[in-house]
Amino acid sequence: MMDRESHEVRWLGEPLILTATEFNVLWTLADRPSSVLDRSRILEAAYATDLGVTDRSIDSQIKRLRMKLRRIDPEFASIETLYGLGYRFTLPTEVRAAA
């Protein structure tokens, strides 16, 4: 569950504390589940006006997101890396069935 207005995120009912950039990266991925997004597209959505940021910053953001989500759900695997292409967010089967 993500609420853009209140900047709240919950995974499996547990609150997830994210920085503004982490939130934007996760929002960008989750907004298009199952779609492959390249780094430049995620970068544009997450950093909007910060021109000094490289697309490799996205890798760091993804790493931190995975770490935070795995603290709640050690089996978290919903952010996939597609080497040479980018990243994809997929919902676990149980979450998809409940939605």
Rank of each mutant, 00 (worst) to 15 (best):
D73N: 14
D3C: 06
S34W: 15
T93R: 14
Y47C: 02
W27T: 03
H7C: 02
L69H: 08
E14S: 13
G84Y: 10
V25K: 04
W11T: 01
A97R: 15
E5I: 06
E94F: 14
A30M: 14
N24S: 14
R56G: 02
T19E: 02
F76E: 02
D59K: 08
E94M: 07
M1L: 04
D31V: 00
F23S: 00
R39C: 05
E14D: 09
E5Q: 06
L69E: 03
S40G: 03
A45P: 03
R39A: 10
R10Q: 05
T49C: 03
V95K: 06
R39W: 05
S34L: 10
A30D: 00
T90D: 11
V53P: 12
T90M: 11
L16Q: 06
I62A: 00
L26H: 05
R70C: 13
L12G: 13
I42F: 12
A20S: 09
P15N: 01
G52M: 10
E75P: 01
R39D: 12
R32C: 09
T54Q: 11
M1V: 04
R10A: 00
T49N: 11
R4S: 10
I62R: 03
L43K: 15
E5F: 10
H7K: 11
R4D: 07
L65C: 08
F89D: 01
V36C: 13
T90N: 10
L65S: 07
R4W: 08
S35D: 14
Y87C: 07
V95M: 06
T19P: 04
E75R: 13
S40L: 05
R56V: 09
L85Y: 15
T81P: 09
L91T: 02
R41S: 14
